[in-house]
């Protein structure tokens, strides 16, 4: 499938920003099941300072906000050709050791809720993938998909408590529980082609767990499936913070609003 993406994010500030930075993880990488055909990032109201590859092999770009700007707009556009690999990304590579993906973070640190979830899951499974799919299904039935009940800072533990959440929360809960069960796990941010619409409100997020023998395997908890050719992986990390499309810091001037326009289509 050739997935076409246009993703624009505009930040508006309440007053001119004397100095500010934005760290972007918005460039997809070619990997198992996907090949980046074309990709451009353009910025208005800011400029690219440096680019590097981080410990998750993400392409990272750092922008400075133009002195005195009251808005910054980042537009990513490109085409990615994808194939269905039944969610399997494959063997682990790179310098980051697998044990690193067992580290819990403030977003994923398990508390009584996650522990209870793992207990409920039970231990009687044919294999690792069956167990992880069951975990995914359990999460979706425990924490129903609903926008507005959680936000960017909600942790896995808090999301279970709330009983509702979005893809970010589902991914965090999955990662937390998977690590508790001894699987290295990571957060994935990316795009999903939806059957019924082109315009979307935000990018998508899911999780990957490392399964002995198979390597990394993806789980889209919110949709109850493993990623197929409709999915484009952009960035990975231990949690949302490490894979977030944009993280920024401004001095004098607060973000007033963030407006996203996203089109994902075949």
């Amino acid at each position: 499938m050739l997935v076409k993406i246009r993703h624009s994010t505009e930040y508006r500030y309440d007053q001119p920003v004397p100095y500010g930075l934005q760290q972007l993880r918005m460039i997809p990488k070619s990997s198992a099941g996907q090949k980046v055909v074309s990709w451009t990032t353009s910025v208005e109201g800011g400029r690219k300072e440096v680019a590097f590859t981080d410990q998750h092999n993400n392409h990272v770009e750092l922008l400075t906000i133009d002195r005195g700007a009251t808005a910054v707009t980042i537009v990513c556009e490109g085409e990615v050709s994808t194939a269905d690999t039944v969610g399997i990304i494959g063997q682990h590579g790179g310098y980051a050791p697998l044990w690193y993906f067992e580290r819990q973070t403030p977003y994923t640190r398990p508390g009584p809720q996650v522990r209870q979830l793992v207990k409920t899951l039970g231990r009687d499974f044919d294999n690792d993938t069956a167990r992880l799919h069951a975990l995914s299904a359990l999460i979706l039935s425990t924490v129903q998909y609903e926008i507005g009940r959680t936000d960017f800072s909600t942790s896995a533990e808090q999301a279970i408590e709330a009983g509702h959440g979005v893809c970010q929360d589902h991914a965090h809960i999955f990662i937390s529980a998977a690590r508790l069960l001894g699987y290295p796990a990571r957060y994935v941010s990316g795009y999903l082609v939806m059957d019924d619409r082109v315009e979307q409100e935000a990018g998508h997020a899911w999780a990957e767990a490392h399964v002995p023998g198979l390597g990394w395997v993806g789980f889209d908890i919110s949709n109850g499936v493993s990623p197929d050719e409709r999915y484009v992986r952009v960035a990975t990390g231990l949690d949302y913070r490490e894979a977030a499309p944009v993280s920024g810091i401004t001095f004098g001037g607060h973000t007033e609003s963030m407006v996203v326009h996203l089109q994902v289509q075949q």
Binding site: Q23, E49, F52, T53, V60, L62, I249
Partner: peptide
């Protein structure tokens, strides 16, 4: 503060990015 402790007032935001970019 961009990459480590966000509450730090002493550091240089983005210096790690510049470092990793050589």
């Amino acid at each position: 503060p961009l990459n480590f402790n966000p509450a730090s007032m002493l550091g240089v935001p983005g210096i790690l990015d510049a470092y990793r970019a050589g």
